[in-house]
Structures are given as structure tokens and as C-alpha cells.
Amino acid sequence: MAVIPVSPQTDITALIASDEVSEGDVLLLENGVYNQIVIVTKNFLRILAGGDGVVFDGGNILLNAFILEEVAGVEINGMKITNYQNNGIHIDGGLGHRIINNEIDNVTGRGIFAGSSTANLIWKNTVRRAFDGILLRFGSTNNRVVENLVQFCRDDGIESWLNEDENNVFAGNKASGNTRFGMEIFGVNNLVVDNIVESNGRIGLYVAGSDVSVIGNKIKNNNNSGILFDSSSFNTFVGDNEVHANAVFGMDRYSNQGSIQCNAITFNQSIGIRLNIDAGANLIYNNTLICNPPVNILDTSEDNPFTVPDNIILNNIDQPCAAS
């Protein structure tokens, strides 16, 4: 294992492909502007910024700053990435990468994209002004998306794209000011915990995967509902979230067999929890609902002419708005 110094004049892709670089080596990048696409073709390389001024600038022509295709265990740490025409960091297949502490701004595609990739750690990155901030797609599983800041994206902040993007964890992230959804979770058995999702253009958190757990998040001031559970989000667990001051519903539930417990749902502009006409067999338990006019909980499944299993609404604190 060696530490190999790199300057902006180095063709990093060619260097990696050469015999000068072996698995386990560290490429230590000096400060400067790198007008490059880096294609990583070896496993277990650590590509580290040697200062806080390592800038990858695609000049609004180049497509990706970093491409990791069918490799494993690559770390990319501390880069500033801007002006690329597709994704800032593009992961295709492979596994076990560590994408850490990068700042990605103004890319046409996604800040960080993982397709058919597993067991990656995406930690403490900042993504601004991408299309989607962080996107897991094509069966990306068992990834850990932790403590990232994703803002001002033109579509969604953080997304697991379809049901096949399963068993991922999204923890401690902040998604704010994105045009559409703060977080969009289609993956089955994803864990969404301790995130802050605020001031997004539409829904704060959209959940479509089954068996998803949504715990300890702060979902506030979004321009539509705080959380929407669509009809495929069977058996979600939703606990200890603060859902506050969203422009429509606090929680809008279309699916069955959910457990909604110990949440604080306050001052949303319409209903606190709406159970739609096909939403049955949900448990709404021990929540605190304050001033979500006109009613804190509305169960419209009772109007369904066909049989829908009863929802159980039990032991909630249900306070109307204070009289002015």
C-alpha cells in the first residue's frame, strides 16, 4: 500500500489503470481545479482530498466527475464537484464504497447515483442543485445513506426508486428546499430514521415500499402533506416523528396494516392523519395531535361500500385549535 500524490495535471484515470497503482493505495489529491472524469477500475482505492480546495469542474460539458463501475471498496472523500452534465458520482454495480464528505453543486443529473449496487456508505455529503440529490436505483440494496445535506434539487432530495431498492437505511439526513419531494422511499424494508425533511415543494416524505420503518424524523413546513403512504406501503411502522406545519395533511395514508404510534402531529393546515377510503387495519395509537383543522383524525374508510378492515384509533391526545 502506498500514498500517491496527485495534482490537477495528473490524468487520474490513466494513473489508476497503470501499474503504479495497486489495490489499497491512497491517491492524495492536492488543492486545485481538476477538469476531469475519473474512472475507477481497481478495488479498494482511497481517493482523498489533501485539502479543502480540491475542485472537480466539468465545465458544463463533462458528464461525471467519478465513475465506479463494477468495483468494490472505493473511498471518495472530500471532493468539491461542480458543473457536470450528468451525475457527480456515478456508481454502477459493485459494492462497499465509501462516499464521504463531498460537496456536489450544480449537476444536471444526480449528485450521487447508485445503480444495482450494494452495501455502500454515503455519509456527510452535501448535494445542492442537482436533479435528484441521492438516488438508489435498479436494485440497489443494503446501502447506508447517513447525515447528508440535500438542498435545492430540481426534483427529489433523496430517493430509493422502486420496490427492488430494498433494505437501505436513511439516517440523520437533512432534505430541504427541494422542488418536489424531500424523500421518496419506494424500496421495501427501508429504514428512515432521524432525518429532517423541511420546506420541500411538495410532499415531505413519500413512502411506497412495504415494511418500511419511519422513526424519529422531523417533517415540517412542506408545501403539501408531511408524509404520504401510498397504497403499496403495506405494514409500515411510523413512530416518534414530529410532523408539523405542513401545508396539507400531516399524514395521508392509502395503505393497510400500518402502525402509527407516538408521533406529534401539530399545526398542519388540513387534517392531522387522514385514512383514505381503502386504508384499513391500521393502528393509530398514543399519538399527540394538536390543531390540525378541521379535525385531527379523519377515517374515510368507514364510507367504503365494500368491506375494509376497521382501523383502530386508540389512546391519542386529540386537541383542537385553541379558541382565539
Binding site: 490524468d11 458528464l63 450528468n86 456515478h90 454502477d92
Partner: peptide, 29 residues
């Protein structure tokens, strides 16, 4: 995006063309 990238290919510096083409292949994939 692919159409736009194809149109931009002539603007890519020669020493980066092969890498841009690789990125372009991934978009097509």
C-alpha cells in the same frame, strides 16, 4: 439527456474524449 450529451461531444477536449464516451455509454446503459 442523451441527445444533449451527443450534441456536446464535439466540445469535449481530445484528451478527455475516451472518458466522456465511457460516461456516455453508461447513460445509454
Amino acid at each position: 439527456m442523451i441527445a444533449k450529451s451527443a450534441a456536446n461531444m464535439s466540445r469535449v477536449p481530445d484528451h478527455l474524449k475516451a472518458y466522456q464516451e465511457k460516461a456516455f455509454e453508461l447513460m445509454q446503459k
